[in-house]
Design a protein around this nucleic acid. Structure first.
Lengths: 236, 236
DNA sequence: CGCCGACTTGATAACCTTCAAGCTCCGTGG
DNA sequence: CCACGGAGCTTGAAGGTTATCAAGTCGGCG
């Protein structure tokens, strides 16, 4: 919060001083290289539920999420939304270049107000050449993502609703878990609808499920908020 | 085994003469480069339902499928198999290197008897440096795959069984469709069980579905074989 | 204060899995 | 060559899970 304010005011300078350089793609860069990279970047501040880019847009930039969370969403012809995955701070997104793709294949929507850097896609190959860690980082990002999608696919194919919801919530805990005196909270606003779009079910089923878990003391669920008290007791 | 020997000795020459060089990663290479690549390759001939490699194996090689079809499969702790995607001739697979991964994350199982080339993973980065088309080809392969998995995810999340089955079959038609006097056939043996593992349902539901489509004249389905007569009439 | 978005909960019904039984095809071994 | 067995497939019936429909609560914001 405080930090966010600071960033707003001083922008890129603040980014340098903050622990940005510890974020993944910058990991193996020295201060000078990091500075160069940041000099080339554009800063994006995006309000909750607004998008960084939309499915089908020309992929003119690639992004690094600094703060906040976002969901990668695809919309069907019928208008159903499906959340393909979530992105946490430090991860890159909109990396169409890694797929030789001209357009973004999905929408990047802010789950909470967020801050990101972007670079023109033309710089992609240059970064790969100039900064050895960058190539590795992008590969790892792609790998993580593929694995995550596979897990999701398997979950959808083999489990029924309750376990799918449990899986989704556990994954979010890993990415965005925040200790509270009450248990581990998911650190951004999350509606029943959101969860249903992640798990391919209805908000009604999600509601019933959370209600049941709450009765059993496994979670505390409020409006737009989920806190897990006993992660290990959720149905695998 | 014996067979692999034979192929090693006599096979490569034949590969060169065949239209191997038209297959994707070789596309932009001249004859000399292609020869060099093939000289470094190992030939694999794999019987139906045998595997090229298994989930968790050390990713010592990456592969190019020359002939036959294969499925990329993951198995859950409970023993459920899920077919994540299918690979057609000309596509690379086992490309753990593209994900900075040390092990294969899934099993590659021959859907029909098949032939593949492999190279040691150490050569990956060399190929990328030496052969400009290779980088592009791998990126495109990864992109196609991600898109395909997303589509599958969306299908699973929003459609019910009948449409999921229709989607799966249409995708297979694109990858492995073969014109016959009777309609477009899927060009490798495919059981109800296989289809159920692709769509997250049971072989019973698949059977009922195909029976119904057969009654309506949309498909002809036999033992391990599916022929589609009216692709456009399948439920989107 | 009233409205809207988020959420809950019951009732009903559709969809699909599960269980059960039996069929056909094909390879194998007697 | 035929019998046998197993793999692949079909179909009915029953039952459970989950979506859909419907009604209403809660809480924040203009």
């Amino acid at each position: 919060m405080n930090q966010r304010e600071t960033m707003t005011q001083f922008g890129k300078e603040a980014l340098l001083q903050a622990n940005i350089s510890e974020l993944l793609p910058f990991a193996s860069l020295d201060e000078d290289q990091t500075r160069k990279m940041i000099d080339l970047a554009t800063v994006h501040r995006v309000k909750q539920n607004k998008t960084y880019f939309d499915e089908g847009d020309r992929a003119e930039n690639f992004f690094l999420l600094i703060d906040g969370f976002l969901r990668i969403v695809r919309t069907t012809k019928e208008g159903d939304q499906v959340v393909v995955l979530h992105i946490a701070p430090g991860q890159m997104f909109g990396i169409a270049k890694a797929f030789e793709s001209v357009n973004y294949t999905a929408t990047a929507q802010a789950a909470s107000e967020g801050l990101a850097l972007s670079w023109p896609s033309e710089l992609w190959d240059k970064f790969i050449q100039d900064y050895p860690g960058f190539q590795k980082a992008t590969r790892r990002a792609v790998g993580t993502r593929v694995t995550e999608m596979q897990d999701k696919l398997i979950s959808m194919a083999t489990h029924q609703v309750e376990r799918r919801i449990a899986h989704a919530i556990l994954r979010l805990l890993e990415q965005a878990g925040k200790e509270t005196e009450d248990g581990v909270a998911i650190d951004f606003p999350l509606t029943r609808q959101d969860i249903s779009e992640m798990t391919g079910t209805t908000l009604h089923s999600v509601s019933r499920c959370l209600s049941k878990w709450q009765r059993d003391g496994l979670v505390r669920s409020e409006r737009r908020r989920v806190v897990v008290r006993q992660p290990e007791s959720l149905p695998v």
